[in-house]
Design a protein around this nucleic acid. Sequence first.
DNA 1: ATAAAAAACTAATAACTGTTAGTTTTGCAA
DNA 2: TTGCAAAACTAACAGTTATTAGTTTTTTAT
Lengths: 196, 196
Amino acid sequence: MGKIQALKNGSRKDLIVKNAAALFRKKGFAASSMRELAITMGIEAPSLYNHIGSKNELLQAVCFNVANRFNDHLDTTLASAATIIQKLDNLIRFHIRMMLDEFDEVIVANHEWKQLEEPLLTNFLSQRKKYENRFVMLIREGINEGQFKNIHPHVATLTILSAVRGLEFWQRHKKELSIEELENNMVQHLLKGLIK
Amino acid sequence: MGKIQALKNGSRKDLIVKNAAALFRKKGFAASSMRELAITMGIEAPSLYNHIGSKNELLQAVCFNVANRFNDHLDTTLASAATIIQKLDNLIRFHIRMMLDEFDEVIVANHEWKQLEEPLLTNFLSQRKKYENRFVMLIREGINEGQFKNIHPHVATLTILSAVRGLEFWQRHKKELSIEELENNMVQHLLKGLIK
DNA sequence: ATAAAAAACTAATAACTGTTAGTTTTGCAA
DNA sequence: TTGCAAAACTAACAGTTATTAGTTTTTTAT
């Protein structure tokens, strides 16, 4: 068997991580075996260990890559000169695009973080809590400035982030709606409501 | 070791299913072992098989119990004399209460249905699709009658159902808000929006 | 008290798990 | 063409898994 093909940009390890994300999403982390992952690469399971350290390391790579992407975007958005509503709009749209563009990775990070090992599990959870708190503060700011309704900011944050996460089930209607239309529909619903 | 204690109402099997739901929620189905489950019952793993047929049967019980609860409630709600908005309000509040009251079971059904075996996997998914379609039709009806904004009804359905499912992360703020206040906040956000 | 049924136990198995050690093959640079 | 590093291979392991078979204990009903 010949060597596996590398991506144009990225090491062989990156390709393994990408295939792992796809496999973990379909079957779940614990129900996925290294032998199955090896098949997607066209090699034997032990050969994977020329490129990676362990199965758990693959999950870590996926989860923290996703976390970093979200954290970086939140940094730049909150630091921008946009209005509160523009910032929130921007954040929602970014979450939607991440769900669609990095489908496997984001879903794995959302579903399988429980299987991370300490101290990474604690690290991941505290990062997520911090992210959520900054989101809450933005909404609280909007309430204080009189632009948002007096909705409990934790509830509003949960509602928004969860609604977007639900896009993992969107695949069925991809053709009916463009990404931009999808974004507009969700943003309108979450910001202005369903009732006329 | 004596016999395990039965619930006041319910067989020993029901208690096993209940403990299984709690275990599966905490660790995930595939990462949970029958030995761990046996420990929660205070017995040895093989003794479980005096009451149940297989590990997978436990997952089936959890998933289809939840599905039946939701289907039954949807039946009665849609058949009621309430207005469209009242029906939708009613459905959202039921989902919220199910998330809080049947925490373990609903989360397991939402997360671990992938591990169901055929033909039950297909059965479960078609039930869920059917449920979702009836939800979509209710919203479409509201749009046609001019009560709802012209939001793509599949998107609105996804937004509402996903937002509520996110209550699996709510535990942290339980004390700050009563269940009724939580319901009111979420319903207002999902029906009337965040922006004033 | 006794018989029957329910439910616990111990021992064992075959399949599968992630991972290692050691060896051979491959592909690129000289 | 040759040498070397990267990356594949085979064989194997120690541990865990769900589950079965067979036996003993416990509870229930008469």
